[in-house]
Design a protein around this nucleic acid. Structure first.
Lengths: 355, 355
DNA sequence: CTGAAAGCGCTTACAG
DNA sequence: CTGAAAGCGCTTACAG
């Protein structure tokens, strides 16, 4: 039996080039397979013998090999980037959505690139198109309110860009939707106020061009109706989702001779506006007026008394929306529609009405 | 004279492939130059005849040609992505910083990819390294507080990644710093309170491991000293930049037998904590207590009375930091250090002390 | 199950 | 000032 060969430098055991990281060629050479086989392993093709796969995967781990997303992107004609497109929600909402998306993208090789835009400017859809096409994005998350824009979705469909839409209700194929059920969140607020004994309530809602505003108001009104309370039109005020518009709406509502005993606001910013007006008019919250917001933003617990508010679970929403984009198509079809449920966080801004 | 030839399909006027976008080869063919010349024009090389450049640039505009960042990135061994690395500042701060960065990146071909992290977790520097190396980032913006971590900057230096650090004072080469002069912002608050007539003041500051906390407190104390007022150590309380820690610090400060007449808080969250305690203790702001915050967050104007606060101009800061990363190196050297100045926004939370 | 060739759309290094 | 060749690190299409 010949003595075992002393290891010598051959083509197949040349150490990795120092400094620069390993490439698919290094892995193929070191493993003694073709680069195509390595490529199959990277892309989880089943057409690789189990033994080969394990051996090569171990090697990749050992040398810390990670395929270059630039090279893969060039060959695939599609990058490993997920875009997040949004208009102008509150900062905390955006940031939570980003955190959620990154939860899903962590260790996937995908990264998140952000694209705020102004949906009122005429060229905004074109701006998104350039963003998507130039970067050859793998997919985009559409956050409310741009998620509600059918023209934007149609454009993306037209250029073959996959997307997920986050919205209060289904606006598209199940495979492209994450539903936030704003109707249910508002209904929970209505049930809570009704249970406390309120009968004369009011709603300060967002712009009627926003589905979220329609759904939240509708959910509140319908839930009251189910419990036998009709909310007159005069008790529903449309505002602009801003603090200032909340102030203006609250002034109208609280100046009338018969004040409502409770106000449901379609977001926390407007609820803060109600607080401001109540303070100015000497109306005590919650003794003389109950208030509920929507968002459960940090502001809710900074206000005094701490504001009861509907939590949206934004981070979960972002995670689900991003996860759908990087899943294989087969996994997406036929599964139930993605949804995230809101729920009311009770703090100290409500109590039974004065008798 | 022969009749003019009817245009026929030749190699050089074959229309662009329908559907897919033009490549450097299409431009070279259509312009009748080599792809290398087109490449020179893309990269603004001076080694191109003026007439050629103009002709090719017009063609590129006409067909809507944009070079593929994936292909350029592969050849350059560096992507056209800017990373933004941050720990856990307030949502509005992050979002403003992102808006600012995108202001600088608009129409530059670069995009912004976000990377929140936890600087207390042991592997976080490694996480940033993987992020930078795998995506072959063109550069990263380091936002406070990670911008203050020298180990992180050293790692980036070690792997040859360009970066800009946003911090209260110079921690690095001028070419890598954007200074926010927190010291000056705090000094302005001090001058304002002194001018109103306050003599017995206090500071609620952030963690002493944060340069921002040190600078803001130092700036406030030094400015008072310049005006002949010594702030005793007992009037400086270290808190955690959070609402809750602000509440705790305010309780200590306002429970004592001799209350300060004014409190400077190193951020708005802690100032909101002071408001909460003052409300609970029946101390009227601003009549019995003046308060100043730092950040000029949306919260400042939601509080009652509206909080005077030092505005940081975060969006400008982000714009400058990102612009430095995509500038040519020559433009960076020798120019004055980048800086953004804070200034006090006066609202209704301060007045002269009661006599 | 595996591989050799060609190609993705650019740039670098070299030559003229 | 301009260009032909080779290469960046992968994948696709084809063949076996």
């Amino acid at each position: 039996m010949p003595a075992p060969r002393k290891p010598r430098k051959t083509a197949s055991d040349t150490p990795l080039p120092p400094g620069k990281s390993a490439t698919i060629n290094d892995i193929a050479r070191l493993a003694g397979v073709s680069k195509k086989t390595v490529s199959r392993i990277i892309n989880r093709s089943p057409l690789v013998r189990e033994e080969t796969r394990e051996r090569v995967e171990k090697l990749m781990r050992d040398v810390g090999y990670v395929p270059d997303p630039l090279a893969r992107g060039l060959a695939f004609r599609r990058s490993f980037l997920i875009g997040m497109v949004y208009d102008n929600p509150t900062a905390q909402f955006i940031v939570n959505m980003q955190y959620g998306a990154l939860d899903a993208l962590r260790d996937s090789g995908f990264e998140l690139v952000v694209h705020p835009c102004d949906s009122r400017s005429p060229g905004y859809i074109d701006g998104v198109r350039r963003f998507v096409q130039q970067q050859k994005l793998h997919g985009v998350m559409l956050v409310p309110r741009v998620s509600e824009d059918q023209a934007l979705a149609d454009m993306l469909d037209g250029i073959g860009c996959r997307y997920t839409r986050i919205a209060a209700l289904a606006l598209d194929d199940h495979s492209r939707m994450v539903i936030t059920h704003d109707r249910d969140g508002a209904a929970e607020a209505a049930d809570y106020l009704q249970t406390l004994g309120h009968r004369d309530m009011a709603v300060i809602t967002g712009p009627s061009s926003y589905r979220s505003a329609i759904e939240r108001t509708g959910g509140f009104v319908d839930a009251l109706a189910r419990r036998g309370i009709e909310l007159p039109k005069s008790r529903i005020l449309e505002a602009g989702y801003t603090f200032e518009s909340g102030v203006a709406a609250a002034e109208k509502l609280l100046a009338g001779k018969r004040r409502p005993t409770a106000i449901f606001c379609a977001n926390d910013e407007m609820a803060a506006g109600v607080y401001r007006v109540a303070l100015r008019m000497g109306i005590d919250i919650p003794r003389q007026l109950s208030v509920i917001g929507y968002d459960d933003s940090p502001l809710a617990s900074r206000l005094w008394p701490p504001l009861s508010s509907v939590r949206r679970n934004t981070r979960d929403t972002g995670r689900v929306a991003a996860a759908m984009l990087i899943q294989a198509d087969d996994d997406v079809r036929g599964r139930p529609i993605a949804s995230v449920r809101p729920h009311l966080i009770v703090r100290d801004s409500c109590q039974p009405p004065e008798t």
